[in-house]
Design a protein around this nucleic acid. Structure first.
Lengths: 345, 345
DNA sequence: ATGAAAGCGCTAACAC
DNA sequence: GTGTTAGCGCTTTCAT
């Protein structure tokens, strides 16, 4: 009936002349096994090529050693980098990683979470929480969740996010320094807190600093298209700002595209900046000024925090709440004299 | 001892006044259940919020309803798109998807495959087979594998790839038509068959057509950096071709970067083209001529083929071998008169 | 230090 | 149609 009639623990036990309990102890590095016995068992394990069934282990132990990463859209260049960081850290801790696309849809998230729960997932890292916060926090109540990238609204939830506010402020001040007094912001959807925080910071930088500027905001999502659309609307209305900031680099690239298309020169006519510092931002073809996040650190810390709350079943007294520093990378799109490739400010 | 003391099938059975077997039949939509009984059980299932444990099911049935997608590097923009296509199709069939980064490293692949096997994975789609072909085909011998994107060397393996040869040929002919007679190709690693096929096709298009050109080849990998390096070497040697083709779009973008950096104008001085037609190729900032693959179809077919060979344990008489058509998308990087955004040739 | 035995939650014969 | 039962492969008390 079974499909993978491989070597079972029982086979090892028989061959080594010990009980299954002893074999189990050996393969799990449990102490309380005489060295001689241990070596004999290990030899048999090697010889027979025994591999414990993760399935059976998970069933009996209640731990699958699998965690999940939820992202809105893996095709958004920011997420693959995060995914790699998370995978690396997870594998190192002996955990497998499942990546799920939520498509910013609470129902899709709910289905994923349900399936993951059925599969005995040990924990979830959600990088794109939005309308689906309840879907991930609610049902599998017991399953630990750590939010990254976007801050959740639940008061006791764990999160590790970047200092988007400081990043926005840095961009704002930088733009003023470059002599731009009207600054446009192409925002993200209102359910994404990182976008709101970026706007908040930008507003601070533009309107509260020693020099003052004016801030124009247009709604959008995280796509190139919404960057293009915003520019076209501004152009049509005859009120194109002297600088435009996208809620992320994709949007900023869309902004650049539409500007070029309408004959503007970047940055002479309009300066452009974004957030995330995706790999392509540094390309000589684009040279986009951007606020870089420490993705590796975010991923690594998230995994650590998650594994901690998995192994410690008691609800911790205080939730994990970390805000990682960001740094502004100034490139050609805001400063024509910036080094072609990479100038760190 | 157990962690998720949820509702068990036994609870449902007791509450509904039937045996666990009957409940099992109902939740699996098995026939041979009286309508009245079925409804009563369903009501209890709903009321108690019973969800079958995928773990227990997998253990006893030998099917985890999980498949894996292996890619060399999820940060390469081609793969996320493929991953989405595969995920969509898998979910629709009731399967979960695990994505693993092989880093082009056979040992990494081996570890992934081992872990997946331990977890009872039902099948594997490998999108980046290279030196790790044995690692994925060998040990879990029983686990079905379908290769996509890169063709495997094993004679009886299943694969679904694009017609890279035809794509290369199309680029070659197009470049000759645009008056370029010396064409450079920045190749991929020799273990990646898609790269070899692209070169083969390009050679055909450049040297065998009605018009003749000269082909120069430089080694590289699939990264932007190798595109840059190739250009720099050609420049240093004073033998920069009139057109350069990258083994993929990332390489082509690297080529463009280095050309710009050395003061060349694209396409007047040097025309550039690539493969994959990643999302960014169509950007007005880049406008890269590229050979597009039908990624959605590739993903969908791969999943279907995989699920077929999962459900039919008998080794099929003939392996699945499909070659999907590609199409050349001409943009500004080879044809200055091409429409800014998207011109399909 | 080691073994025996009781499950983990479910499916699949096989009986009725 | 429905119930009984024997596992799937392992971990984990509890004895010894």
């Amino acid at each position: 009936v079974s499909r993978q009639r491989g070597v079972r623990i029982e086979d090892v036990a028989r061959e080594a002349g010990v009980s299954v309990a002893t074999v189990s102890r050996v393969v799990r590095d449990h102490s309380d096994v005489r060295d001689e016995t241990r070596e004999r068992v290990q030899e048999v394990v090697r010889r027979l090529g025994y591999r414990p069934s993760a399935l059976a282990r998970a069933l009996v132990s209640g731990r699958s050693r699998m965690i999940a990463l939820l992202v809105s859209d893996i095709a958004n260049p920011f997420y693959p980098q995060l995914a790699k960081a998370v995978e690396r850290q997870a594998l190192q801790a002996g955990y497998g990683l499942v990546i799920c696309n939520t498509e910013e849809d609470a129902e899709v998230t709910r289905r994923h979470v349900e399936r993951l729960h059925d599969q005995g997932i040990d924990g979830i890292i959600h990088a794109s929480v939005g309308l689906d916060e309840q879907a991930v926090l609610g049902p599998g109540g017991a399953t630990p969740v750590v939010f990254v990238n976007r801050r959740p609204s639940a008061p006791r939830a764990n999160y590790i996010v970047s200092d988007n506010r400081a990043g926005g402020e840095a961009i704002g001040r930088h733009l003023l320094e470059m002599g731009r007094t009207t600054v446009g912001f192409v925002a993200g959807p209102s359910f994404a807190r990182n976008g709101l925080e970026r706007l908040e910071g930008l507003r601070l930088g533009v309107t509260e600093g020693p020099r003052r500027g004016e801030l124009l905001v247009k709604g959008g999502d995280f796509s190139r298209e919404s960057g293009q659309a915003a520019v076209r609307e501004w152009v049509a209305a005859g009120e194109l700002p002297a600088a435009i900031v996208g809620v992320n680099d994709s949007v900023a690239i869309g902004v650049m595209e539409a500007l070029i298309e309408t004959g503007r020169v970047i940055p002479q006519d309009v300066a452009v900046a974004g957030f995330d510092d995706i790999y392509l931002a540094s390309s000589g073809l684009i040279g986009l000024t951007s606020v870089a996040q420490d993705i590796d650190r975010m991923g690594a810390r998230a995994v650590r925090a998650l594994l901690r709350s998995i192994s410690d079943p008691t609800p911790p007294l205080r939730a994990v709440r970390e805000i990682l520093p960001t740094r502004l990378i100034v490139r050609h799109s805001t400063n024509p004299t910036a080094l072609q490739a990479d100038a760190v400010a």
